Amino acid sequence: MTSQTITAAAAGTWRLGDLVVNRIGFGAMRLPQTGEALVADAVPRERDQAISVLRRAVELGVNHIDTAAFYFSPLRSANELINRALAPYPDDLVITTKVGPGRDQSGEWLPHATPEQLRGQVEENLRQLGRDHLDVVNLRIVGTGSLAERFGALAELRDAGLIRHLGISNVTPAHLAEAQAIAPVVCVQNPYGIGLRPDQDTLVRTCGEQGVAYVPFYAIATTGRQAGATDRDHPEILAVARAHGASPAHVRIAWTLHRGPHVLAIPGTGDPDHLASNVAAGALRLSEEEVALLDSLHGQSR
């Protein structure tokens, strides 16, 4: 499939609260570095290339960018690149960030933020992005314990005008119910893809029933995580890709979007060609038979 004239609008739209976004967005995790992301010895990406990818993403209709203050290499951060590339920001651009984890200047991970420390993380994202409020902030959770105290702290920052909408990341259905009792949740961001976390299927449906966006990460790479899809993918995926003149990554993104109109995709890349290809996947329409085939693969253990 050709990607030259396809924009993010081809995938349709969804609302994050009162903010309308195209269902194909962009994940900024890979922007600051090449190779494996979020490691202390990451190799910085060439700055001009990263900036050009961001600007091209907006040209292709991407109006939902996912980022975090802890997305950085030894030389630069994703937030700084977004600010440099896109400010003053387009009126329709929605920037989603996340808080909870942190990294020190060497890139090593720190203990997750306490409720008192979350305000500092929010303010750091505001400073780096050059904004007076954050569109959407996801609270990232580790483990199955209660999120009430930390989510409540973010709800207070929302009431104070620093945050417009709240989401949660790396969570269970119990977390969603707990958070919804405190403040409205506009999105859930969890790992999910063909063959990755089929136990999430119920939560995907629950989010759809509640009007909550479900935003998978690692949707292309699945169990390979940051490695990405390859031509050594499952024969079923390769067959569907060949039938459409597409790549395995296209098929994985398209299947993700077929899970429901509330499911968004945020594939990330620092390569302009991969960017256009990922956006084009929003136009790929799978047949009922192809969806059924991929669904059966999804349900298999890997």
Rank of each mutant, 00 (worst) to 15 (best):
R131I: 10
A50R: 06
P90L: 04
A249S: 07
P32G: 01
A239G: 03
E46P: 11
F151N: 00
N278A: 15
L81F: 06
V263F: 14
T34Q: 07
S73Q: 07
S169K: 03
N79E: 15
A229D: 00
S296G: 07
V94K: 05
R55G: 10
H165C: 05
A40M: 06
P184V: 12
A283N: 09
N278P: 06
R252Y: 00
R119T: 13
Q33C: 11
R23G: 01
L162E: 01
L147D: 04
G161M: 07
Q128I: 07
G120Y: 13
I220Y: 00
E46T: 15
R45W: 01
A78C: 11
A276F: 02
E156H: 11
A265N: 02
E178F: 15
Q300R: 14
R127V: 13
R285G: 10
V171D: 02
P111R: 09
D201Y: 06
D66G: 12
T256F: 08
P261G: 14
S301L: 14
L129I: 09
G35V: 06
D91L: 12
S247Y: 02
L286H: 08
V21Q: 07
V263K: 02
E59D: 13
A68E: 09
T222D: 03
G208P: 01
E149R: 11
Q300H: 09
T269A: 06
H64G: 03
I24V: 15
E290Y: 03
L86I: 11
N22A: 07
R55L: 09
F151D: 00
E80Q: 12
R232P: 00
L118S: 04
T256W: 05
G61R: 01
R140H: 11
R127G: 10
G224R: 15
G161C: 08
T67Y: 01
L196T: 04
V171G: 02
P184T: 10
Q121S: 11
D201W: 06
D199K: 04
P272S: 01
V136I: 14
T13V: 15
Y192G: 06
A276L: 10
P198D: 03
E178S: 05
R55K: 14
R259D: 06
E290N: 08
L31S: 07
A174F: 11
R158L: 05
G152V: 14
G161Q: 08
D199E: 14
V20W: 08
A85Q: 03
L118V: 13
R30A: 10
R84Y: 12
G17F: 05
G260E: 04
L81W: 03
A227E: 12
A219V: 07
V122W: 02
V58S: 02
L297C: 02
A254S: 06
V204W: 03
G299S: 15
S73M: 08
G143C: 09
D201S: 11
D66T: 12
N125K: 07
L166M: 14
G167L: 09
N190W: 01
Q105F: 01
P88V: 02
S73T: 07
I65G: 07
A68K: 12
A249R: 00
F151K: 01
A221F: 00
T7H: 04
A241I: 07
A57P: 05
P198A: 05
R103H: 03
I253M: 03
P198Q: 01
A239T: 13
